[in-house]
Design a protein around this nucleic acid. Structure first.
Lengths: 186, 186
DNA sequence: CGGAAATTGTACCTATTGGTACAAAATATC
DNA sequence: GATATTTTGTACCAATAGGTACAATTTCCG
């Protein structure tokens, strides 16, 4: 049910997703909707955001952290992201909320989502020998490129923009050599 | 008047910007609003998007194209962008619309904005000796990084994320050397 | 089966939405 | 100063917003 809900918010934004649309998309009447979400629309959105965050944690962040092979973990991340965002056809709801007017309502969850992503990726990069600072900046850069690619791909309506950006991002991450003096074991 | 209007749309999105908010922000009553914008809210948004596009054309794209010194032109672009987006505190309305539910209404203008940006930057990069394809990809990458930086900076509420991204983007553009065999005069 | 609990549909509520009508007021023009 | 034009405030409108109340139904479980 949360996934149908998520698609409505994705397609119409928080404000744009009216209860009528939500009801239609989920097949649930108002009675049921307010039975499962006594907190109303805000609770619906909060749970959707939570479920997205949870998905990324288990499917992307955790594997990324645990990977004994950081290169493979990073490759899996890019593959997972490409699948999740349907090669750019699907938008990032968290990013949409971050830019939109409902940001204040969900600021904590939005921030946590991105911080966790950067942290997980930075950890993998440190395993590759990068210093903490460089790893963090590289991770930040990669995450931001994904978000930007989603915006641009959607704006010009060309999903190739998205896949190209993913490939460039992945390649640069693999090609950037850690400074010798900063290499360390973790 | 368009600038006050723009800030309302920026702050609340297209759907979120109610006529009440618009009226308050502009100091204009409904009577005046519908006198100047007979097309209603949609016309208001269209004119705002148009004025933003026009600003970028004259302040960013055109100088970028005309610059006899491409390096300087690119530096001016980054400086202009940093100022315009108030170092990440201000969001890109065109990007917001691109992600939001009003995208279809303004798809053409949104696309044109980004295409023109990529084109102008790619032209400057060609003057630096890059092949058309490489120039286009580098330009696409830079534009997308700016959009992503806006998303991420706002999501984690840290404008340093934005300025760091701008610096990295600028630096990489300057440091990427064109392939000898592809250098050409224009 | 029978009772308890979870689930659902319907009717209803108030506030607000974007938009219109139009007369009053302000402003410009001669 | 009279006239024509632009600009504004006010009162309205139907539609929809999110939300509540609650009885009727369905499902669960002993």
């Amino acid at each position: 049910m949360l996934s149908a809900l998520g698609e409505v918010f994705r397609a119409h934004g928080y404000e744009g997703a009216s209860l009528a649309l939500i009801s239609e998309a989920t097949g649930l009447g108002k009675g049921s909707l307010y039975h499962f979400f006594p907190g109303g629309k805000e609770q619906m959105a909060a749970e959707v955001l939570g479920s997205i965050d949870a998905w990324f944690v288990t499917e992307i962040y955790r594997p990324l952290r645990k990977a004994s092979d950081p290169r493979g973990g990073i490759a899996d991340m890019f593959a997972g992201v490409d699948t999740y965002f349907r090669s750019g056809r699907r938008v990032c709801l968290i990013g949409v909320v971050a830019l939109g007017n409902a940001r204040d309502l969900f600021a904590d969850r939005v921030k946590e989502y991105f911080v966790a992503w950067v942290d997980a990726l930075a950890l993998a990069l440190r395993k590759l020998g990068h210093s903490p600072t460089v790893a963090r900046h590289l991770a930040e850069q990669a995450v931001l490129e994904i978000q930007g690619a989603l915006v641009l791909a959607r704006a010009v309506n060309d999903r190739k923009v998205f896949s190209r950006a993913l490939m460039r991002s992945h390649r640069r991450l693999m090609l950037t050599r850690p400074e010798r003096s900063q290499r360390r074991s973790i």
